[in-house]
Write a protein that binds this DNA or RNA. Sequence first.
DNA 1: CCGCACCTGGACCCATGGGTGGAACCCAAG
DNA 2: CTTGGGTTCCACCCATGGGTCCAGGTGCGG
Lengths: 221, 221
Amino acid sequence: MSEQGEKVQQLRVVVADDQAAVREPLAAVLGLAEDIEVVAAAADGTEVLAAVSGAAVDVVLMDLRMPVMDGIEATRRLSEEHPEVAVVVLTTFADDESILAALGAGARGYLTKNAGRQDIVRALRAAAAGQSVLDREVQDRLLATVRTKPQASGTSLPQDITPREREVLGLIGQGLPNRAIAEQLFISEATVKTHINNLFAKAGIRDRADAVRRAIAAGLA
Amino acid sequence: MSEQGEKVQQLRVVVADDQAAVREPLAAVLGLAEDIEVVAAAADGTEVLAAVSGAAVDVVLMDLRMPVMDGIEATRRLSEEHPEVAVVVLTTFADDESILAALGAGARGYLTKNAGRQDIVRALRAAAAGQSVLDREVQDRLLATVRTKPQASGTSLPQDITPREREVLGLIGQGLPNRAIAEQLFISEATVKTHINNLFAKAGIRDRADAVRRAIAAGLA
DNA sequence: CCGCACCTGGACCCATGGGTGGAACCCAAG
DNA sequence: CTTGGGTTCCACCCATGGGTCCAGGTGCGG
């Protein structure tokens, strides 16, 4: 696929971040690498598109949170209009939503701002070569998302909880307050509280928020 | 995180493949890279484990189809017993099952045998640095698997929530009470409540239980 | 320079939640 | 038949949560 290149070809890079305090030093430090040339710096998605249209670009290092046009939208446009340009996302946020949106939009890399200079440079090179580089935590989240489905049966809960208690837990997991749970089960709110107290004691649940998490983990919600 | 190392530290690599006709040339050509030292070659999973126990190893380049103990099982054992050793899979097969099994077992990279020498070297370096490198096709498959099962992504968070609010939401999602959140963020409980109120208003969250569910759905917990 | 968004903090009020103790009923198993 | 678990309910207490209103500080962009 790629040749053994001791003669390193220049990587033409665009750095995109709305914060100049991040963008400028980043561009400067990346330029220090002998095989990297920062051909443009952009403060929002529209500037990225303009830069790519105006000059030959291999890779865009893209922040997600930018005004006017954010990194997701810019990535989507790029992968449609300039599929030969690779996008590597560099952002502080590593939540599932952002990761999936970015990769779904066509990003070939996803780094958090914990990444060091070497990590970034490596990701840029890999992306230009058609590979995809992810931070460890990002990879873990992506993988976790894949394997969240197959857990319909009880995961962790103790088995000495009664059917009624399990039922109540499920409703808690759906975010219902005690009154609504009572109405749904045709019992009084006092009874709901009793079930909840027994349930918490048996399963070692601390409070309602904890209960919601356990309910979701157990597939009851 | 990683320093700018012009003095490249040696990467101690183990090459694992059952076919000598693949293993030997691969080990030889990788050894040509000045920052890579092939410390062992293994023909199956047991040999890999033996090699890792016997010498300091940074990365294992692992084939999946091997006799006695295959690459998946070897990867799983490695990530349990020697989590500091990274595993990069190099195989001819790029089916969903193999990819998910390998990454689920703890592999930090997945390359097909289309990959060139430069691609492999780059992946080894990245894996040793804690990053994860995937071939483009592998990445695409993984992503396709993910987005066949996105359930209620229509209920995603509004984009106008601030970083701080997002942070607070994440802690709520972990089941922490306001006081604990305040301590963790070095702010007062009053401030936490303010963030929560703004957050609830913006995202249409009703109460804490609802917040936990949204946080989990958004991957913040 | 002024406005705006964000983060910070305080005061107050009231609804809800969580904990305790007790009590009645049913039903199945010992 | 008697015991015990499950379910149903009540009364009481108080910590926490959720809502409202307000206000100072900061940093950025028009």
